[in-house]
Amino acid sequence: MEILYNSGTLLIILGLPFFLSGTVGLIRFPDIYTRLHALTKADNVGLGCIVCGLALQSASWAVTAKLLLIWLLVLIASSASCHLIARSAMQKNIQPWTRP
């Protein structure tokens, strides 16, 4: 039991840098498309790590299932809205930044 709990804590600690780097990427990256990369990927992986860690620590199966459902919803929602934003940015002829 103790091992499960500690490995859950480790997973949560692993997830935190992803969130922070997602924010750093959102601030630092040069154009919409690259910022979308930072936002969707880093945040989803970070949330996945946190959800898995909490699921390892949780006592009941119901809580674990609910956590996984939340992650699945965030995954679907963020990938769909990411595609929507990128698509309408393309339709509005916003050119991607390229290395000079």
């Binding site: 992803f18 780097s21 750093v24 880093a42 991607p96 290395r99």
Partner: peptide, 23 residues
């Protein structure tokens, strides 16, 4: 997706700009 997260983290946190985007 884990690899994708690591990749983005590396690019966001490195001092040099590692981006070379394209379509």
């Amino acid at each position: 997706s884990f690899r994708g997260g690591i990749d983005v983290m590396r690019r966001a946190l490195s001092a040099k700009q590692l981006l070379n985007p394209g379509l």
